[in-house]
Protein backbone atom coordinates (compact mmCIF):
# COMPACT_ATOMS: atom_id res chain seq x y z
CA UNK A 1 0.00 0.00 0.00
CA UNK A 2 2.56 2.53 1.14
CA UNK A 3 6.31 2.42 1.11
CA UNK A 4 8.40 5.08 2.87
CA UNK A 5 12.11 5.00 2.05
CA UNK A 6 14.87 6.92 3.82
CA UNK A 7 12.58 9.92 4.43
CA UNK A 8 14.32 13.07 5.64
CA UNK A 9 12.17 16.09 6.47
CA UNK A 10 13.10 19.54 7.79
CA UNK A 11 11.13 22.43 9.15
CA UNK A 12 13.14 25.48 8.18
CA UNK A 13 16.73 24.44 8.73
CA UNK A 14 15.89 22.00 11.47
CA UNK A 15 15.89 18.31 10.50
CA UNK A 16 12.95 16.49 12.12
CA UNK A 17 12.78 13.15 10.30
CA UNK A 18 16.20 11.65 9.70
CA UNK A 19 15.73 8.61 7.50
CA UNK A 20 12.41 6.91 8.15
CA UNK A 21 11.82 3.52 6.50
CA UNK A 22 8.37 2.00 6.70
CA UNK A 23 6.32 -0.49 4.65
CA UNK A 24 2.63 -0.92 5.31
CA UNK A 25 1.02 -3.67 3.25
CA UNK A 26 -2.71 -3.58 2.45
CA UNK A 27 -4.93 -4.66 5.33
CA UNK A 28 -2.39 -4.03 8.10
CA UNK A 29 -2.55 -1.73 11.07
CA UNK A 30 0.77 -0.21 12.09
CA UNK A 31 1.23 1.81 15.24
CA UNK A 32 3.91 4.43 15.66
CA UNK A 33 4.79 5.26 19.22
CA UNK A 34 7.41 7.60 20.49
CA UNK A 35 8.28 10.33 22.91
CA UNK A 36 7.25 13.95 22.40
CA UNK A 37 9.29 15.65 19.71
CA UNK A 38 10.24 12.40 17.98
CA UNK A 39 8.60 13.55 14.72
CA UNK A 40 5.32 11.60 14.88
CA UNK A 41 3.07 14.47 13.84
CA UNK A 42 5.59 15.63 11.22
CA UNK A 43 5.30 12.21 9.59
CA UNK A 44 1.48 12.45 9.46
CA UNK A 45 1.64 15.99 8.06
CA UNK A 46 4.18 15.15 5.38
CA UNK A 47 2.20 12.13 4.23
CA UNK A 48 -0.99 14.18 3.97
CA UNK A 49 0.69 17.14 2.26
CA UNK A 50 0.57 19.94 4.79
CA UNK A 51 2.65 23.02 3.91
CA UNK A 52 5.71 24.06 5.86
CA UNK A 53 7.76 20.87 5.59
CA UNK A 54 10.70 20.29 3.27
CA UNK A 55 11.53 16.78 2.14
CA UNK A 56 15.31 16.79 1.77
CA UNK A 57 15.82 13.11 0.93
CA UNK A 58 13.93 9.89 0.37
CA UNK A 59 10.64 8.88 -1.21
CA UNK A 60 7.08 7.83 -0.46
CA UNK A 61 5.34 5.47 -2.87
CA UNK A 62 1.60 5.02 -2.48
CA UNK A 63 -0.29 2.58 -4.72
CA UNK A 64 2.64 2.81 -7.14
CA UNK A 65 2.59 6.63 -7.33
CA UNK A 66 5.00 9.23 -5.99
CA UNK A 67 2.80 10.47 -3.14
CA UNK A 68 4.91 13.54 -2.39
CA UNK A 69 4.32 14.91 -5.90
CA UNK A 70 0.55 15.12 -5.36
CA UNK A 71 -1.40 18.12 -4.04
CA UNK A 72 -3.05 17.48 -0.67
CA UNK A 73 -6.55 17.25 -2.18
CA UNK A 74 -5.32 14.76 -4.80
CA UNK A 75 -3.83 12.57 -2.08
CA UNK A 76 -7.18 12.70 -0.29
CA UNK A 77 -9.07 11.78 -3.46
CA UNK A 78 -6.66 8.89 -4.00
CA UNK A 79 -7.62 7.57 -0.58
CA UNK A 80 -5.19 9.06 1.94
CA UNK A 81 -7.10 10.15 5.02
CA UNK A 82 -5.76 11.99 8.04
CA UNK A 83 -7.78 11.97 11.23
CA UNK A 84 -6.52 15.18 12.78
CA UNK A 85 -5.13 15.49 16.27
CA UNK A 86 -6.79 18.91 16.55
CA UNK A 87 -9.74 19.06 14.11
CA UNK A 88 -10.46 22.69 13.10
CA UNK A 89 -13.78 24.45 13.46
CA UNK A 90 -15.43 25.89 10.34
CA UNK A 91 -18.19 28.27 11.42
CA UNK A 92 -21.18 28.56 9.07
CA UNK A 93 -20.45 25.34 7.14
CA UNK A 94 -22.63 22.48 8.28
CA UNK A 95 -21.13 19.11 8.91
CA UNK A 96 -23.38 17.41 6.40
CA UNK A 97 -22.48 19.93 3.74
CA UNK A 98 -18.78 19.33 4.26
CA UNK A 99 -19.31 15.56 4.16
CA UNK A 100 -21.26 15.76 0.93
CA UNK A 101 -18.79 18.15 -0.71
CA UNK A 102 -15.91 15.86 0.25
CA UNK A 103 -17.64 12.72 -0.97
CA UNK A 104 -18.62 14.35 -4.25
CA UNK A 105 -15.09 15.66 -4.83
CA UNK A 106 -13.88 12.11 -4.42
CA UNK A 107 -16.57 10.61 -6.65
CA UNK A 108 -15.88 13.17 -9.35
CA UNK A 109 -12.19 12.31 -9.24
CA UNK A 110 -13.07 8.67 -9.84
CA UNK A 111 -15.42 9.52 -12.70
CA UNK A 112 -18.63 8.89 -10.77
CA UNK A 113 -21.77 11.02 -10.62
CA UNK A 114 -22.60 13.12 -7.58
CA UNK A 115 -24.24 11.16 -4.83
CA UNK A 116 -28.03 11.17 -4.71
CA UNK A 117 -29.18 13.37 -1.81
CA UNK A 118 -31.52 10.78 -0.36
CA UNK A 119 -29.08 7.88 -0.67
CA UNK A 120 -26.47 10.05 0.96
CA UNK A 121 -28.65 10.90 3.91
CA UNK A 122 -29.60 7.27 4.46
CA UNK A 123 -25.96 6.23 4.31
CA UNK A 124 -24.80 8.97 6.69
CA UNK A 125 -27.56 8.24 9.19
CA UNK A 126 -26.53 4.60 9.31
CA UNK A 127 -22.90 5.48 9.98
CA UNK A 128 -23.62 8.14 12.54
CA UNK A 129 -25.66 5.66 14.57
CA UNK A 130 -22.74 3.24 14.66
CA UNK A 131 -20.60 5.98 16.21
CA UNK A 132 -23.30 6.71 18.81
CA UNK A 133 -23.54 10.31 17.62
CA UNK A 134 -26.73 12.33 17.63
CA UNK A 135 -28.10 13.21 14.18
CA UNK A 136 -28.18 16.83 15.17
CA UNK A 137 -24.39 16.90 14.74
CA UNK A 138 -24.94 16.71 11.00
CA UNK A 139 -26.60 20.09 10.93
CA UNK A 140 -24.21 21.88 13.25
CA UNK A 141 -21.24 23.82 11.90
CA UNK A 142 -18.15 21.66 11.45
CA UNK A 143 -16.66 21.02 14.90
CA UNK A 144 -17.99 24.32 16.23
CA UNK A 145 -18.62 23.97 19.94
CA UNK A 146 -17.95 20.20 19.80
CA UNK A 147 -16.29 18.61 22.82
CA UNK A 148 -12.91 16.91 22.34
CA UNK A 149 -14.57 13.51 22.12
CA UNK A 150 -17.20 14.74 19.67
CA UNK A 151 -14.53 16.14 17.38
CA UNK A 152 -12.66 12.84 17.31
CA UNK A 153 -15.83 10.87 16.62
CA UNK A 154 -16.57 13.33 13.85
CA UNK A 155 -13.18 12.53 12.28
CA UNK A 156 -13.97 8.83 12.32
CA UNK A 157 -17.40 9.54 10.84
CA UNK A 158 -15.68 11.29 7.95
CA UNK A 159 -13.42 8.29 7.44
CA UNK A 160 -16.42 5.97 7.50
CA UNK A 161 -18.11 7.99 4.77
CA UNK A 162 -15.09 8.63 2.56
CA UNK A 163 -13.83 5.02 2.86
CA UNK A 164 -10.13 5.77 2.38
CA UNK A 165 -7.51 3.14 1.52
CA UNK A 166 -4.86 4.52 3.82
CA UNK A 167 -5.91 6.03 7.09
CA UNK A 168 -3.60 8.01 9.37
CA UNK A 169 -4.87 8.42 12.92
CA UNK A 170 -2.92 11.21 14.57
CA UNK A 171 -3.18 10.92 18.37
CA UNK A 172 -6.80 9.98 18.01
CA UNK A 173 -6.88 8.93 21.67
CA UNK A 174 -5.74 12.28 23.04
CA UNK A 175 -8.42 14.12 24.95
CA UNK A 176 -10.76 11.13 25.07
CA UNK A 177 -12.25 9.66 28.23
CA UNK A 178 -12.52 5.91 28.42
CA UNK A 179 -16.09 5.71 27.10
CA UNK A 180 -15.33 7.91 24.11
CA UNK A 181 -12.16 5.93 23.48
CA UNK A 182 -14.19 2.71 23.29
CA UNK A 183 -16.65 4.22 20.82
CA UNK A 184 -13.92 5.67 18.60
CA UNK A 185 -12.00 2.37 18.67
CA UNK A 186 -15.10 0.46 17.74
CA UNK A 187 -15.55 2.84 14.81
CA UNK A 188 -11.97 2.28 13.68
CA UNK A 189 -12.19 -1.50 14.08
CA UNK A 190 -15.32 -1.53 11.97
CA UNK A 191 -13.30 0.08 9.17
CA UNK A 192 -10.57 -2.55 9.25
CA UNK A 193 -10.54 -4.75 6.19
CA UNK A 194 -8.15 -6.47 3.81
CA UNK A 195 -7.92 -3.57 1.42
CA UNK A 196 -7.40 -0.81 3.97
CA UNK A 197 -4.22 0.09 5.85
CA UNK A 198 -3.82 2.18 8.99
CA UNK A 199 -1.01 4.20 10.44
CA UNK A 200 -1.88 4.88 14.05
CA UNK A 201 0.17 7.52 15.81
CA UNK A 202 -0.02 7.54 19.56
CA UNK A 203 1.89 8.49 22.61
CA UNK A 204 0.25 5.97 24.91
CA UNK A 205 -0.26 2.25 24.82
CA UNK A 206 -3.87 2.66 26.00
CA UNK A 207 -5.32 3.00 22.48
CA UNK A 208 -3.68 -0.27 21.45
CA UNK A 209 -5.75 -2.14 24.06
CA UNK A 210 -8.74 -1.38 21.89
CA UNK A 211 -7.25 -1.37 18.41
CA UNK A 212 -4.76 -4.20 18.16
CA UNK A 213 -2.00 -3.36 15.69
CA UNK A 214 -0.21 -5.85 13.46
CA UNK A 215 3.11 -4.05 13.91
CA UNK A 216 4.37 -1.52 16.44
CA UNK A 217 7.20 0.88 15.57
CA UNK A 218 9.07 3.14 17.92
CA UNK A 219 10.03 6.52 16.52
CA UNK A 220 12.76 8.38 18.36
CA UNK A 221 14.81 11.35 17.23
CA UNK A 222 13.47 11.19 13.68
CA UNK A 223 14.10 7.49 13.05
CA UNK A 224 12.31 4.22 13.58
CA UNK A 225 14.49 2.60 16.20
CA UNK A 226 12.58 -0.56 16.98
CA UNK A 227 9.74 -2.57 15.45
CA UNK A 228 7.84 -5.53 16.78
CA UNK A 229 4.44 -7.07 17.49
CA UNK A 230 1.77 -5.72 19.86
CA UNK A 231 3.86 -6.94 22.80
CA UNK A 232 6.40 -4.20 22.05
CA UNK A 233 3.84 -1.60 23.09
CA UNK A 234 3.36 -3.32 26.45
CA UNK A 235 7.07 -3.51 27.00
CA UNK A 236 7.37 0.19 26.22
CA UNK A 237 4.56 0.99 28.58
CA UNK A 238 6.36 -0.90 31.37
CA UNK A 239 9.88 0.34 30.75
CA UNK A 240 9.31 3.82 29.27
CA UNK A 241 10.73 5.41 26.10
CA UNK A 242 13.97 5.89 27.90
CA UNK A 243 14.54 2.17 27.54
CA UNK A 244 14.45 2.31 23.75
CA UNK A 245 16.57 5.39 23.55
CA UNK A 246 19.22 3.73 25.75
CA UNK A 247 19.22 0.57 23.63
CA UNK A 248 19.81 2.59 20.49
CA UNK A 249 22.47 4.81 21.94
Amino acid sequence: MISIKNLHVSVGDKPILKGVNLEIPAGEVHAIMGPNGAGKSTLSHVLSGKEGYTVTEGSVTYKGQDLLALEPEMRAREGVFLAFQYPVEIPGVSNIYLLKAALNAMRKHHGKDEVDALDFLTMVKGKIKALEMDEKFLYRAVNEGFSGGEKKRNEILQAAILEPSFCILDETDSGLDIDALKVVSKGVNALRDEARSFLMITHYQRLLDYITPDVVHVLADGKIVKSGGPELALELEAKGYHWVEEQVA
Partner: peptide
Protein backbone atom coordinates in the same frame (compact mmCIF):
# COMPACT_ATOMS: atom_id res chain seq x y z
CA UNK B 1 -5.71 22.27 4.80
CA UNK B 2 -8.46 20.43 6.63
CA UNK B 3 -10.78 20.83 3.64
CA UNK B 4 -8.06 19.83 1.17
CA UNK B 5 -7.35 16.75 3.25
CA UNK B 6 -10.99 15.83 2.71
CA UNK B 7 -10.52 16.13 -1.06
CA UNK B 8 -11.96 19.64 -1.46
CA UNK B 9 -9.74 22.03 -3.44
CA UNK B 10 -8.55 25.19 -1.71
CA UNK B 11 -10.65 27.22 -4.14
CA UNK B 12 -13.82 25.35 -3.27
CA UNK B 13 -12.89 25.47 0.40
CA UNK B 14 -12.67 29.27 0.34
CA UNK B 15 -16.03 29.40 -1.42
CA UNK B 16 -17.52 27.13 1.16
Amino acid sequence: FFCQQRGISAEDAVSM
